[in-house]
Design a protein around this nucleic acid. Structure first.
Lengths: 204, 204
DNA sequence: GAACCGATTGACTGGTCAGTCAGCCAGCGA
DNA sequence: TCGCTGGCTGACTGACCAGTCAATCGGTTC
């Protein structure tokens, strides 16, 4: 009764397909999943995938954009806060990313492995959006520097890449079992990365 | 007359093919280069690629292993030094990686983009070697912690991933023009990452 | 100069998929 | 009951490409 008076599909097949795609992409990787795999996983006919999406690529595009825009919003919102200091802003950003992983590990795996870290193939299309995240983080750092909370001799863009790179590498490590992922690790991960990047490894 | 009495190929075609592959992989990415592209770039017949390599994959394998073993040696050698403190060891490692990039940006691009950051597809084969690098870095950190030079409340494996992740993200940034790569940046990059990770962003 | 052999060539094949399309069918309004 | 509409179906096609292989070449040996 609210917003979509004309349509009330009993099962949202489009969503069904997207969710199936997350599972299959996470399991087999984008390149080795055939469109038939997605359709099978969704319990839907092959052709229906093309009814809702222009191409196999567009399915991944959709998955990425859906989630990445949330990240962009989260970063920019954290930055806008006048309650948080620069360090707390970074910690919020890290927290959001780790939380995304806890919430839907398969989706985050797909986004990181197939888009964010695949800047040569698929990620190329999304470089502008990806860059926007780096820039927003750099902005937080730059403001911290201007306020004297961060040292000024490390370029903000440089620091931003280090910070984001550390986070993504940790996620990759968990995803591929390179480091053990105890529940607690995810809990305190945001505190630890922030501590590493803001305080450093050497004792104060 | 020295060591290969029976063969003296005027042009090492195998090497020719490998070098051509670096260029083509860097330009088009592994997945969208056909074996014919490599042969063309090398100025060699299609079939010759299969004379020297079992498959297209094996070409990339070879490129990766060749360089990665140098990295492993460098890390382990830095660790073995009793002249360097833990921080200087990390700086040496970072220096080696950035130097590799300066020396052959195309090869490093291929290794990072197609192997290291492609743990789902191609990198899977090489996870053990990749992991060995992370472990060796973690060892440096752990020793630093034992000696009291590094704080003990950040897990060594965690710190290792952060450190390596920061470096790789910076390289990716340069490779894909996400951050400007002035000559000086590469010069002092090793100092800056080490400063970020060891000293932190907050002023001391 | 004949036999031999590894390097080199490139046309060809077999298999794999992304994307198409002609039509099916369930529900609905007349 | 009879269209009609649009979500839905899945067999089919066209393109693409990794890898094969039979043939040629150039050099060496006896």
């Amino acid at each position: 009764m609210a917003s979509n008076p004309s349509k009330a599909p009993p099962a949202d097949k489009r969503r069904l397909i997207l969710d199936a795609a997350i599972r299959v992409f996470a399991r087999q990787g984008f390149h080795s999943t055939r469109v038939a795999d997605i359709a099978d996983e969704a319990g839907v006919a092959y052709g229906l995938v093309y009814h809702y999406f222009k191409s196999k690529d567009e399915v991944l595009n959709e998955l990425f954009s859906e989630r990445w825009s949330l990240l962009l919003t989260a970063i920019e919102e954290a930055d806008r806060s006048d309650r948080l200091g620069p360090r707390a802003k970074l910690e919020t950003v890290a927290g959001f990313i780790f939380e995304s992983y806890r919430h839907d590990p398969e989706l985050m795996k797909v986004i990181i492995v197939e888009v964010t870290r695949a800047a040569n193939s698929f990620g190329r299309t999304h470089l502008p959006e990806i860059r926007r995240a780096y820039d927003s983080i750099a902005k937080i750092v730059a403001e911290g520097q201007a306020a004297g909370a961060f040292r000024g001799d490390i370029d903000a863009a440089f620091a931003s890449m280090s910070f984001y790179g550390a986070i993504e590498q940790l996620l990759s490590g968990w995803i591929f079992d390179l480091i053990p992922a105890a529940e607690t690790d995810l809990e305190e991960a945001k505190t630890l990365v922030t501590a590493t990047i803001c305080d450093g490894l050497e004792p104060r």
